[in-house]
Structure formats: C-alpha cells, structure tokens
Amino acid sequence: MLKDHAKIIHAIAASEEIIGRKKLQKMVYIAKKLEFPFQERFQFHFYGPYSEELTLRVEELCNMGFLNEIKEKKGGYYQYRYTLTESGKEFLSLNEQVSMPNLQDCMSDMNCQNARFLELVSTILYFDNLPKEEVQEKVFTLKSKQRYTEEEVGTAYQYIESLKGKAGH
C-alpha cells in the first residue's frame, strides 16, 4: 500500500536533504525519466513538469511523521527543506523491497544542481520525443522568463547523458 510512499522516502534519504518543493518535483521527475520506478503522473506546469500526486504523497509522509518539512522565510518567499525523521528511517529499513540501485548517485548529483538548471533538464526530458531543435524552441518559448541560453541547453543535454550513465542506462 505504501510502496510508492517508500520510493519517495528512499529518494529523499538518498539525497539526505532536499531544499525546495520545486527541486524535489524536478528530481523525482528526472529520476522517473531515468527509468527509476516512480509512479506519479506529471503534467507540464509553470515551472516545468509537476505532479499533484507527488505533492499529496509528500504531505501524507509529513503527516505520518516520516518526513520533516521545515518552512523557512527566504527574502520575500518561503522555502521548504525535506529530511527523513527517525520514523522515516525506520520505515525505510522495513521496506527494503524498494530496491533502486544507482538512485543514490543520481539523486546526490541532482541535489548539487540548482533548481533553475533542474527545471531546464526536466523540461528537456518532458519533450524528449521531439528533435533537439524543437525541444530548444519549446524551452525558449515556454521558459522565456528564465532566459536560458543555447549553451545551457547543450549543458543540460550533456548532464542528462551523464545521469543516464549513473543510472546504468
């Protein structure tokens, strides 16, 4: 029943701490695109791929006491930090059947990136059925406020390839 919840706990445990709801969304989406078995459905939203299901699961995990959500005021907005609680660690040890080899390498690497870059990577992956030129056009159109450069798009494609290597593909 809580297998999908356990996968999210596993992802956050692999990262130790994730700062930002947007970053968490992008990391899980990218991991899913790397063929890790996350079940959440994503739609394209203001900040790229977004999953209402993931938002609800994270909220449930906080309510169950498995995740710590710390709300911090940063300038004019709030930022959220996610870490596992002791109960979360215990739950994870009881759910060892959630085996995702290589997840830790991928999540740790993504966690070192900023949310803006992960938004670009996840947007590229969202349109990965299109040719590169069309994907770049979509990025420049849909994400015009982010002012991504061609160089950043190229870097994002290289990053995706390096993550695929870490994921074992």
Rank of each mutant, 00 (worst) to 15 (best):
Glu133His: 06
Asp128Met: 02
Glu152Ile: 02
Thr149Arg: 07
Thr123Met: 03
Ala115His: 00
Ile160Ala: 03
Lys164Gln: 12
Arg116Leu: 00
Lys138Tyr: 06
Thr155Glu: 15
Gln158Leu: 12
Phe127Cys: 07
Ser122Trp: 01
Leu103Asp: 01
Tyr157Glu: 15
Glu133Ile: 08
Leu118Ala: 05
Lys145Gly: 08
Asp128Asn: 15
Leu163Trp: 00
Pro131Met: 02
Glu134Asp: 15
Thr123Ile: 05
Leu142Lys: 11
Leu103Ile: 00
Pro101Gly: 01
Leu125Met: 13
Asp128His: 13
Gln136Val: 09
Lys145Trp: 13
Glu161Asn: 08
Glu161Val: 14
Val121Pro: 00
Ser144Met: 04
Arg147Val: 05
Asp105Ser: 08
Phe140Asn: 08
Val153His: 11
Leu142Arg: 06
Gln104His: 13
Thr149Gly: 08
Thr149Phe: 06
Ser162Thr: 13
Gln146Trp: 07
Ser144Asn: 11
Glu137Asn: 15
Tyr148Gln: 02
Cys112Trp: 03
Ser122Phe: 04
Ser99Tyr: 07
Lys164Met: 11
Gln146Met: 03
Lys145Met: 08
Arg116Ser: 07
Glu152Thr: 04
Val135His: 01
Met100Cys: 09
Phe127Ile: 06
Leu142Pro: 03
Glu119Trp: 03
Ala115Trp: 01
Ser99Asp: 14
Asn111His: 01
Ser108Tyr: 06
Lys132Leu: 08
Thr155Gln: 14
Gln97Glu: 14
Glu119Lys: 03
Glu134Pro: 04
Lys164Gly: 13
Asp128Val: 01
Lys132Ala: 13
Phe140Lys: 13
Phe127Met: 05
Asn129Ser: 15
Tyr159Val: 10
Ser122Asn: 10
Leu120Cys: 10
Val135Tyr: 01
Arg147Ser: 11
Asp109Ala: 14
Leu120His: 07
Gly154Trp: 05
Met100Lys: 06
Cys112Glu: 10
Gln104Lys: 15
Gln104Asn: 14
Leu130Phe: 14
Glu151Thr: 00
Gln158Gly: 14
Glu151Arg: 06
Val139Asp: 02
Asn111Ile: 02
Gln146Cys: 08
Tyr126His: 13
Asp109Pro: 05
Phe127Thr: 08
Cys106Tyr: 04
Glu150Arg: 09
Gln158Ile: 05
Val139Trp: 01
Leu120Met: 13
Glu134Ala: 10
Ala115Lys: 00
Gln113Ala: 06
Glu161Arg: 09
Tyr148Val: 02
Gln136Leu: 07
